[in-house]
Simulated assay, not measured.
Amino acid sequence: MTDAHLPAAGTPLTGLRFSKGHGTGNDFVLVADPDGAHIITPEQVAGLCDRHRGIGGDGLIRAVRSQHVPEGLALLADHPDAEWFMDYRNGDGSLSEMCGNGVRVFVHFLIEQGLVVLHPGHSLTIGTRGGVKVVARTDNGYMVDMGPWEFIFPEQAAERGMDSIVETSGVDVARPGLSVSMGNPHTVVALPTLDELAAANLTTAPEVAPLPPHGTNVEFAVPAEPLVSDGVGYITMRVHERGVGETLSCGTGACAAAVATRFWAGDDAPDVWAVDVPGGTVRVRFFPGPDGREHVELSGPAVIVADGVLA
């Protein structure tokens, strides 16, 4: 067990227990606040997520019962089984609608903390700012119904297969992008080779024009050659996350990259995709949802690596 010292602004959190977890390298600080007793400021989040002066993480997740969060309370009217709400903040303290790796780690955290019981083959409904998500436990991880996807600029996507231009340090010329909403915004850029993917400098945010209304995460995807093997599509991806920077993985980003690549590949493209990210591999599957729309399922591991107390 470790202690973490916070900046002066974070001293009201003294004594609060925390865990550190990750999903394919996308890492989070997690705190349990079932009754909504703590208001964690953006400055405190940034301090906790600082990799040199805090605990370090791509974001912070607060586990709170939905009834204690306005967004969660609104969801309970139609989803009374969504007892728990994933209050997710980016590493800079800004709010985020949803995180595909984070929701898997969140459910694993609830189990580890004894707040829920979830056996393999069973599922749990979770509230998020991106709507409710159903998370099923598998023998080696978690499987999430991420809900329906949609194009952010549908007319441009249908007409041209792209909707924006993306300029990125390390990439020789601006490239076309396709913007996809997975409950949060993404702009996907296809690159031809792994060498070009490796050369992209994601320490600074790519410039996207036009920019989606609430900003965007930017994914750079390289299709495998061949693209499809044994009915599964394969792509390799890096991502610059809004409010964070480059991360080892992004679950919603992997889904968006699969959406865009599948769209570009045409009608014969498969419904199952393996997405390699610097932190590992996640699996994406498309299926008809109960609402009549096409849904995206994300599968991957979740790990808790440490527990501690804020000093």
Rank of each mutant, 00 (worst) to 15 (best):
M1E: 07
T2D: 06
A4T: 06
H5F: 11
T11E: 13
P12C: 11
L16D: 01
L16F: 04
R17N: 08
F18A: 10
F18Q: 07
S19G: 14
K20R: 15
K20H: 12
H22D: 01
H22N: 08
G23I: 07
T24S: 15
D27L: 09
F28H: 10
V29M: 09
L30V: 15
V31D: 06
D33W: 04
D35Q: 15
H38R: 15
I39K: 13
I39L: 14
I40Y: 03
E43K: 11
A46Q: 05
G47D: 14
G47W: 07
G47R: 08
R51K: 12
L60Q: 06
R62Y: 01
P70H: 06
P70A: 12
L73C: 04
A74W: 03
A74V: 00
A77F: 00
A77D: 13
D78Y: 00
P80Y: 01
W84H: 03
F85T: 10
R89A: 15
L95A: 14
L95W: 02
G100W: 01
G100E: 03
R104H: 02
I111E: 10
I111D: 01
Q113D: 02
L115A: 06
V117A: 14
L118G: 04
H122Q: 15
L124T: 04
L124G: 03
T125E: 03
G130N: 09
V132Q: 09
V132A: 11
A136C: 07
M143H: 12
M146R: 12
W149C: 14
W149S: 15
I152A: 13
A157I: 05
A157M: 10
A157W: 04
E159L: 15
S164N: 11
V166F: 05
T168N: 09
G170D: 02
V171D: 07
R175M: 15
R175A: 14
G177P: 01
L178Q: 07
V180K: 12
S181Q: 03
H186Y: 03
T187Y: 08
T187S: 13
V188Q: 01
V189W: 05
A190C: 11
P192I: 03
T193R: 10
L197Q: 04
A198E: 13
A198W: 01
N201R: 14
L202R: 07
L202F: 10
L202I: 05
A205K: 12
V208A: 11
G215V: 11
T216M: 09
N217D: 02
E219M: 13
A224N: 12
A224Q: 10
E225F: 09
E225L: 14
E225N: 15
L227F: 04
I235W: 08
M237T: 01
R238K: 13
R238V: 00
V239H: 06
V244Y: 00
C250I: 02
A254I: 06
C255K: 09
A256L: 10
V259P: 01
W264S: 10
G266D: 04
G266H: 11
G266C: 10
D271I: 05
A274V: 02
V275C: 12
D276K: 13
D276N: 14
G279I: 02
G279K: 09
V284A: 07
V284H: 09
R285Q: 14
F286H: 10
F287A: 15
F287K: 13
F287G: 11
P288D: 14
P290D: 14
G292S: 05
L298K: 08
P301T: 00
P301L: 06
P301A: 11
P301K: 07
A302T: 01
D307G: 08
